[in-house]
Design a protein around this nucleic acid. Structure first.
Length: 893
RNA sequence: GGGCGAAUAGCUCAGUUGGUUCAGAGCGCCUGCCUUACACGCAGGAGGCCGGGGGUUCGAAUCCCUCUUCGCCCACCA
């Protein structure tokens, strides 16, 4: 009978990946049907930015999701993984503005409408690209439901949410100091202004007292803001303030008089105890300003240049704020008003999109009151209505939720959801509207819409339900909301995850959008730096796919990232980093190549076998498979994907390939019908089929390719939608689990002796075993052929009594193994080796003896632990005895 | 300033409830093999006072304290 397949000895990922992915798509394998009777399992994909190019961080995030979704799909759930992209307001606008800049234009040259049109053009090209890249790495998302946060339907949801919040009084116009990015020319939320530890300077500046002598010295990190000072504050209880309270000081350079006043918020210990108050450029100072009804002059333009009609002198006007800082320091120095400059550690806020130092700036913005939204979610968390994995994020999450601050949602951008707030230019009536009104509902006057757009996250926070058609009551929504698992990086826990929980609870009838938040680690380089484009230390997942295949990429990402831990990869050595996955795929390929070549068209199902009557090796591998199935399933359920993957790796490679396949080879010549062949074929087919299923979520391509070639497969069978293996507890076999390892050990010990004595590989030796018990004798005798072949023996006797001149080993249960090495053995060497072995055993024994004679141990340790230790001691004693006997018989001194 | 995490073989990491056949894996290294599924492989091997110190316990890589190093998050001391 010719082999059923002629397969090349090396797996070629590129020949199969595209083809299989297309088949999955053709079959609609990734689309959950709305009318399916199955229980749904839903993951919504964190939508990548439209401008993003797939990097390895996306790779990790999406492969984790893919493993989970494939796992649940195979377990019979209606698995829906909803993909999409985010319009990414600031980021996208920045990219397109950069393109314009290359043409020597700004967005203002185009005007709002044309600019937005231009961005649309751009994102229509770039948007789908990253999703295409996800297909290359095998992601089984439901592309038929892909969404974009600026889709018309989605935009309706955004608008609906805004209007409802408005109606509930949760949206308000705030006049306060917010984070302003002078490069992006927009306000930012607290979360978007990221802290960076920086060493700056603390400048001590003297403000001369008006109508008197002396100075008040203030300390500041931003001297240029002194132009906007409207007071100097000191703590009311600070004695140093006494002489100056109620007096005025002269602000240098700006040349205005400002009061010295007392305010509780001033920290006595810091600096000089006196603080300059710049209400329009510092949120603290703003509060002081409000309390003391101070003037609040803005002294900078939106793009960070100094400007004020009276306070900024000619030489400084129009200067960039950092230039102005230098200039002002020089001027103060010249005037003798600079006391000193100290290096100073502090945290600077920078724009999360362009890294520009954020400028606090007084302005009017739209805010959402967050406390009412956060409180029920926090309570739900404490009530275990959802979990965060790993659990250690609890404190961080709770702390943020408890101290939540109002959310600035307006952005001075053009790209995004326009804020649906309308104002009547006649009567000043202001309202939020679901439709675009043409007339004021109050007076019929003309209306104008707020020029700003909403924060990108104001649309993303609706992702788990807006994607399914909300506010329409769609069938999708009814079926796929609430979802189950949110997989993301801790960086956007607050940006996104917490807000999704809040919006879900608030707008979806108190139903949280998912039950588990799984926070995975960050991909870093060998110096533990986050991989990034700017550092040039990134890994392009598509390069990896090209070089080693998608499964190799996936394997390294999954096997390398334990629960919530960062993943360190070496961008300078892709070979070392991804070879394990490539090697494993190739190993599977060759296991498959061999097994497939041995299987007939029809293989008896495992149920048809009398399992108890099978040879030891068969019973052992079936038992191992059951253990693997249970452990791998449990691992995946607990999000320990690395553990699950590695367990299957262990089974496929170490147990199935290294031992079982080797053990059954003689029973398997495809041409003949040797005794036991049918059983071996069934076992092989069953085990291989099962392990392919278990591995499919992690390495979907290679497993699908091989699985489809198994006997009995129909043309349209797909592993991607096949069932997760069913546990068969009746296949667990504790006896086999105990006995087969003795066979392995017998083989290993003989191999070890061969290596030790440098026996030529081809030489066949004689060996004898003296089993400890009758049961062991039967077990080893049953696998006699296996031992003969794998240990390269000519003869194996079970009458260990017969003197064999040679080397000796003792198995774990105390059975002896003798290997004949006539003429080859060096008696001296064997004595030395056995003596070393004896020493090792003695050491173990004395440790155990110390423990067992320790009255405290015997008295206080649990009885079963003591019993276990006693049993161990017996086994070691047997080994010692066997070794001692052997040493004596060899006449070693 | 507060909180969290990490420190185990040359490298990247497992080690879940404390019990000497749990000191492990992959890669790398050494030795020998093209044993007709696989050299992206097979067989054998070397290599670690489990970051330092102290404590709890009959017993600690595992629990507690402390120190050192690295990383992350949060925070209106300008």
């Amino acid at each position: 009978m010719p082999p059923r397949f002629e397969l090349p000895p090396q797996y070629a990922p590129h020949d199969v990946e595209r083809r299989l992915y297309d088949r999955w798509l053709e079959r609609g394998a990734f689309t959950a049907r709305v009318d399916s009777p199955r229980e749904p399992y839903v993951i919504v994909m964190p939508p990548p930015n439209v401008t993003a190019v797939l990097h390895v961080g996306h790779g990790l995030n999406n492969v984790i999701q893919d493993v989970l979704i494939r796992f649940e799909r195979m377990r019979g759930r209606a698995a829906e993984w909803l993909p999409g992209t985010d319009h990414a307001g600031i980021a996208t606008q920045n990219v397109v503005e950069k393109l314009l800049a290359a043409e020597g234009k700004t967005r203002f040259d185009l005007g709002r409408e044309a600019f937005v049109e231009r961005v649309w053009q751009f994102v229509k090209e770039t948007g789908p690209a990253i999703l295409e890249q996800l297909k290359v790495i095998g992601c089984s998302a439901d592309w038929s439901r892909a969404r974009f946060t600026l889709d018309p339907a989605y935009s309706r949801a955004v608008r609906e949410v805004f209007v409802r919040l408005w109606e509930e009084g949760l949206v308000y116009r705030g006049h306060r100091v917010i984070h302003w990015c002078p490069h992006c020319l927009t306000a930012l939320s607290d979360e978007e202004a990221e802290f960076h530890d920086t060493t700056g300077n603390l400048y001590y500046i003297k403000y001369p007292v008006v109508n008197g002598s002396g100075f008040v010295t203030v300390a500041t990190t931003r001297p240029e803001t002194l132009l906007g000072d409207t007071a100097v504050a000191v703590h009311p209880a600070d004695q140093r303030g006494r002489p100056f309270l109620g007096k005025k000081v002269r602000l240098p350079i700006a040349d205005v008089e400002i009061p010295v006043l007392a305010d509780e918020s001033v920290e006595k210990e810091f600096g000089t105890g006196f603080v300059k108050v710049t209400p329009a450029h510092d949120s603290n100072d703003f509060e002081i300003g409000v309390r003391h009804k101070l003037e609040m002059p803005l002294v900078m333009t939106e793009d960070g240049h100094m400007a004020h009609p009276t306070r900024v002198p000619k030489g400084l006007a129009g200067l960039d704020r950092f230039e102005a800082r230098k200039q002002i320091v020089r001027m103060l120095e010249a005037q003798g008003l600079l006391v000193k400059v100290e290096p100073h550690q502090h945290a600077l806020r920078r724009c999360y999109r362009c890294d520009t130092v954020v400028e606090p700036r007084l302005s009017d913005q739209w805010f959402v009151k967050m406390k009412p939204l956060a409180e029920p979610v926090l309570a739900a968390y404490r009530d275990a209505k959802f979990q965060i994995v790993p659990e250690r994020w609890r404190a961080t999450f709770e702390n943020w939720m408890e101290n939540i601050r109002d959310w600035n949602i307006s952005r001075q951008l053009w790209w995004g959801h326009r804020i649906p707030v309308f104002t009547c230019t006649a009567c000043r009536h202001q309202w939020a509207d679901r439709q675009d009104p043409t007339r004021c509902p109050k007076c019929g006057g003309p209306v104008e819409q707020d020029p700003d757009v909403l924060d990108t996250w104001f649309s993303s926070w609706l992702w788990p339900f807006a994607t399914f058609g909300w506010p329409q009551r769609t069938a999708d929504l009814a079926r796929f909301y609430p979802g189950h698992t949110m997989v993301t990086a801790p960086e956007i826990l607050f940006f996104w995850v917490a807000r999704m929980l809040m919006s879900g609870y608030h707008f979806m009838d108190r139903k949280l959008p998912f039950t588990t938040v799984y926070l995975h680690g960050t991909v870093r380089d060998t110096q533990h730096r986050k991989m990034s484009k700017s550092l040039g230390n990134g890994i392009d997942p598509l390069d990896v796919v090209r070089l080693y295949g998608a499964d190799a990429l996936r394997w390294t990402l999954i096997a390398g990232s334990s629960l919530g831990a960062d993943l360190i990869l070496d961008p300078n050595d892709l070979e070392t980093t991804f070879a394990p996955g490539r090697n494993f795929a190739n190993k599977l390929w060759n296991i498959g190549r061999f097994i497939l070549s041995q299987l007939p068209e029809r293989v008896q199902p495992i149920e048809a076998l009398d399992v108890k009557a099978l040879p030891l090796a068969d019973r052992w591998i079936l038992s191992r498979l059951q253990a693997t199935l249970a452990e791998a399933t449990a691992s995946l359920e607990q999000f320990r994907l690395d553990e699950g993957g590695k367990r299957c790796f262990e089974f496929a490679w170490k147990e199935l390939a290294d031992w079982y396949v080797e053990a059954v080879k003689p029973r398997l010549p495809a041409e003949t019908t040797s005794p036991g062949a049918a059983g071996a074929q069934s076992v092989l087919a069953y085990c291989f089929d099962a392990v392919l299923r278990l591995l499919h979520p992690v390495v979907p391509f290679i497993t699908e390719e091989l699985w489809q070639k198994l006997p009995g497969r129909r043309a349209d069978d797909l592993l991607a939608v096949a069932a997760w293996p069913t546990p068969r507890p009746e296949l667990a076999d504790p006896d086999a689990d105990r006995q087969f390892p003795l066979v392995q050990e017998a083989i290993s010990s003989i191999r070890m002796l061969r290596a030790e004595y440098r026996v030529p590989p081809k030489a066949r030796l004689r060996a004898a075993v003296r089993p400890k018990t009758e049961q062991v004798r039967r077990a080893l005798a049953g696998e006699r052929d296996t031992i003969l072949r794998l240990a390269q023996l000519a003869e194996l006797a079970f009458d260990g009594q017969r003197a064999v001149v040679g080397a000796h080993a003792v198995l774990a249960d105390g059975s002896d193994v003798f290997v004949a090495l006539e003429g080859e053995i060096d008696l001296q060497q064997e004595c030395r080796r056995l003596a070393d072995e004896l020493t090792r055993v003695e050491r173990q024994l004395s440790g155990l003896a110390a423990k067992l004679t320790n009255r405290n141990f015997v008295a206080r340790a649990p009885a079963e632990v003591v019993a276990k230790e006693r049993e161990k001691e017996r086994a070691w004693r047997d080994q010692r005895q066997a070794l001692a006997d052997k040493l004596k018989s060899l006449g070693c001194s």
